[in-house]
């Protein structure tokens, strides 16, 4: 079982993700350079956080056309597992692998702080080990993280249980006040219809190491690992 973390120019959470997967979870992880065309037989591809291509034009818009994305799109379209965090989520939306788009935060500020999220479906691969109503404390760090989808897409997302996480308060109440960036319906993460491509704005890899004082989001990476084990 092998995980591949794609590195774009401007990715800056790639090493955090690799550290958690490789050092803490003792998994086989390879770095995949954006100019390559070889996914090295990985079982799951992870697009990390950061500011690929300086977030020029729109976050993720230029990275979406990096050479390796051709292979990632092909892999995903064949049912391969792909997970995008923060900028990775933006890249997946730009690539059309996930529905919707990430807009500027409504306060037009870069927001870097801990927030709370709650899983909205427990049968997605990245949420399978999360307990019902469990509140996860996890950091966000983005300027363009306000999830948006038009009404028809939103309806479909809700009907198909494609909403993975919503922002909530510490007690798990999904309220306008607990929405940090103006995301539509407090959406923090979604999956595709085929349930093999996942994206979320919060950073689970930053809330998985006891040394950092918060392991609340490790359950997301544990779920992911569990899923890959079942999948292959």
């Amino acid at each position: 079982m092998k995980f591949g973390v794609v590195i774009f120019p401007g990715s800056n959470c790639d090493q955090d993700m690799i550290y958690v997967l490789k050092d803490l979870m003792e998994l086989d992880v390879v770095e995949l350079w954006h100019k390559d065309h070889d996914l090295q037989n990985c079982d799951m591809i992870i697009l990390p956080g950061g500011f690929s291509f300086g977030d020029y034009l729109r976050s993720g818009a230029i990275a979406r056309f990096s050479p390796i994305m051709e292979n990632v799109i092909e892999f995903a379209n064949k049912g391969g597992l792909v997970f995008g965090v923060c900028n990775g989520f933006q890249v997946l939306c730009e690539a059309g692998l996930l529905p919707g788009a990430l807009l500027h935060n409504t306060n037009h500020k870069f927001i870097c702080k801990n927030v709370h999220i709650k899983a909205q479906t427990y049968d997605a691969l990245v949420t399978s080990m999360i307990e019902h109503n469990q509140v996860i404390k996890v950091p966000i760090a983005h300027g363009e993280g306000s999830y948006y989808a038009d009404e028809a897409t939103l309806k479909k997302l809700n009907e198909n249980k494609q909403v993975l996480f919503r922002y909530c308060d510490a007690d798990g109440n999904i309220t306008p006040e607990s929405n940090p960036n103006g995301a539509i319906e407090n959406i923090a993460g979604v999956c595709n219809e085929g349930r093999n491509v996942f994206g979320m704005m919060p950073h689970p890899e930053r809330a998985s190491d006891a040394e950092l004082g918060n392991t609340s989001a490790k359950v997301i990476l544990d779920s992911m690992l569990n899923a890959v084990l079942k999948f292959i």
Binding site: R58, I62, G100
Partner: peptide
């Protein structure tokens, strides 16, 4: 394809 995202 690139300069505008029709979703937004």
């Amino acid at each position: 394809k690139l300069l505008a995202n029709p979703i937004m």
